[in-house]
Write a protein that binds this DNA or RNA. Structure first.
Lengths: 244, 244
DNA sequence: CGCGCCCTTGAGAGTAGTCAAGCTTTGTGG
DNA sequence: CCACAAAGCTTGACTACTCTCAAGGGCGCG
């Protein structure tokens, strides 16, 4: 905990959106109540329905947040990259996680109990404001995605998902832009609200066109502009009145 | 403003989720910075993209919050009933409204400027906590709806939408449960992410089955249990692995 | 009375889901 | 280190949901 403490304080805490703008004393407070944990690939960090939800921040690795309905259908709500907060919505409602969190790679995360975070927010209103900003942004993203799901075809949704993932964790390499998450076809399908089969067909087609490659479950995008074009493509426009 | 002030304080303020649990002095603060406005049916309360977003609370009437994409497609994000907060997400991000708000009936609302609400939240942290709770709940709802859009067929989505509307504003009448919003077929379509035509066919079928009636643009549900059943119907289950 | 708005209905087409089968890669234990 | 099993991916054929387009009817308001 001591070593973790120093690691947290010096290197990362100030850069986490949730704890941005805090005075040193407040930072001390935050670090004191943190709990750090490691998870190996494929481990569950929490399960949908678990109570005593905690607020998590990912320091290293990647995490898949997914939700299953009573009918067994699954969707990936979000993938978490280092520095991002997750599992926090529950803290403001019934303290039960609304989704599963699974480590996609070996990961390292810190978390705070609901009570501790509440105390932090009361003592340091900046934390509450930061949280509002984050949750507000997530809500807007969710609304955008709802619009996509309602109005766009699968191919466009896959394109948008890739564009978003590039924005989230894209890294320039000599081969193109690499997305850091290890993505199975099924993940992409569950992100876009389609099936494994459709996702596979679409990505295979794009690989054949030379727009991207999959290497070791990582997508490397060679022609981002082509992907973006598909995402905005007006041919085959469905619903709505089109452009003026 | 004086009469409004008293109206607000006495009757409604304490019952608004956003201002719940405030001390009288704080309530005074809140009322002092409120601005009240009336809108006639079909008037725009704000437009997508407008800056200087304010936090709104609806006191009477009903409001449609809808978003249009660059491709012209539209979706109804939410319908607002009296007592609910709206247009507030923008306050925590870039202060631009992410959606349109239109009065579906003559309405009466109060609003606060972003700066004033921020001040209120700093002076009375309870307001920030309330806001977090509300935004958190909205985010969960949005996530549920995303799952619906991803995994369910149109008929089920329409059923769920009706169930939700009943929960939101259902009122028992001698004829059945009436939904207070005036709903055009197009509204229902835009709520469910489908087309006017599909919505019409589905509702017409349900009317023929005697499960509901439309009178004067209000839905009256006679057999809520049938609607609920459709929403959960496992026949024709798509995607996901089904039930154990 | 007519125009605008909203709703219904039919016919046809296309997107994307389902199912089945086989292939490739990855991981594990002998 | 090999072999086999498990997990993941691809592809084809078929099906069905629901979107699109077109046409017409009803109602209310100016």
């Amino acid at each position: 905990m001591m070593t973790l403490g120093t690691t947290l304080t010096r290197r990362t805490l100030a850069s986490l959106e949730l704890f941005r703008g805090l005075l040193p004393a407040a930072q001390q407070d935050v670090v004191a109540s943190a709990r750090a944990q490691r998870f190996i690939r494929n481990a569950r960090i929490f399960n949908q329905g678990d109570s005593n939800a905690r607020a998590h921040v990912l320091l290293d690795g990647s995490v898949r947040i997914s939700q299953s309905g009573s009918d067994g259908a699954q969707i990936v709500m979000r993938l978490i990259a280092p520095g991002e907060m997750f599992g926090t919505v529950a803290l403001f409602t019934d303290h039960r996680y609304p989704a599963d969190a699974e480590a996609m790679t070996d990961t390292f995360e810190v978390s705070w109990s609901g009570a501790d975070l509440l105390k932090l927010m009361q003592r340091h209103p900046q934390v509450a404001t930061n949280a509002l900003k984050i949750v507000g942004k997530r809500l807007q993203e969710a609304q955008d995605r709802m619009r996509e799901l309602s109005t766009q075809r699968v191919e466009q949704r896959v394109a948008h998902a890739i564009v978003r993932l590039i924005r989230q964790t894209g890294r320039e390499t000599e081969d193109g832009i690499a997305i850091m998450f290890p993505l199975r076809r099924k993940d992409i399908a569950d992100i876009c609200g389609t099936t494994l089969y459709s996702a596979s067909r679409i990505l295979t087609a794009w690989e054949k066109a030379g727009w991207l490659v999959t290497r070791d479950q990582r997508l490397i995008v060679r022609k981002p502009s082509e992907i973006r074009r598909i995402g905005e493509d007006l041919r085959g426009l469905r619903r709505g009145k089109g452009i003026a």
